[in-house]
Amino acid sequence: MAVTCTGENRVLRAVVSGEVDHHGAKQIMGELERSINAALPRSLTLDLGEVSFMDSSGIAVILRAYRRLGELGGELKVCNIPEQAGKVLRAAGVDRLVSFE
């Protein structure tokens, strides 16, 4: 499991773990999508604390979650961002779209 979700009352927390590259992104997106569809969250916090590597595939994962939450009228937050992943996300300007904690 690359994504572990916890939460109730449409407040979801998803811990992403491992390497978020093209090889891993499809599985992560799939697992995240299923959790979002099941919980229909009004708030989703993506916890990247267990991410050991992230490239631009991670940008696509976060932007997709951002769009899904937008459709649901919810809010996306990203927290516990490791330094390497943060540099990638900032280089792409994701921090201007999604709130980082």
Partner: peptide, 15 residues
């Protein structure tokens, strides 16, 4: 496809 962000070269250039 939807798993790509189109930011690959941008990341290479900035790093």
């Amino acid at each position: 496809d939807e798993t790509r962000s189109g930011m690959g070269f941008t990341i290479m250039e900035s790093f």
